[in-house]
């Protein structure tokens, strides 16, 4: 990211044009953070104010409030500007409580683990 002057901020790759906007930050571990960008640098280190994590499991989702987050740049995959005119999520998705999404997350994890262990046990069959 070059340190662009104010006149070409909107032409450059600088995150300056995203300052004070509500953004979606995708992290390398798949987490999705939402918040207002207050600061950044050339490594894409970023400060999000009023951050929350959006947990999505199937058609359920939940925004878990986190507060002020300083994100190390190497973990950033993508920073997206949210179009306030558009719906953030498809209409069929249902907002649930934090407790409920944690339960759904655990169920999904258990299902994946089970699938993994079943596969392992069947490996001697040489399926592929």
């Amino acid at each position: 990211m070059s340190w662009a002057g104010p006149e070409d901020i909107f032409l450059s790759t600088s995150l300056a044009s995203y300052l004070d906007k509500k953004l979606l930050v995708l992290l390398r571990d798949g987490r999705k953070l939402l918040g207002i960008l207050r600061s950044f640098d050339q490594f894409a280190n970023a400060v999000l104010e009023g951050a929350c994590e959006r947990v999505i499991v199937g058609d359920l989702y939940c925004d878990i409030p986190l507060g002020l987050y300083v994100i190390r740049g190497e973990n950033v995959v993508l920073i997206g500007e949210l179009d306030l005119e558009r719906e953030e999520l498809p209409p069929h998705m249902v907002r649930v409580s934090a407790a409920e999404i944690k339960r759904a997350q655990k169920a999904e994890r258990d299902a994946t683990d089970l699938k993994g262990s079943m596969r392992k046990r069947m490996e001697f069959l040489d399926l592929d």
């Binding site: 979606l24 999505i56 997206g80 500007e81 949210l82 179009d83 719906e87 498809p90």
Partner: peptide
Amino acid sequence: PHMLSVRN
């Protein structure tokens, strides 16, 4: 689905 409203 979380990318739905991302334009830029």
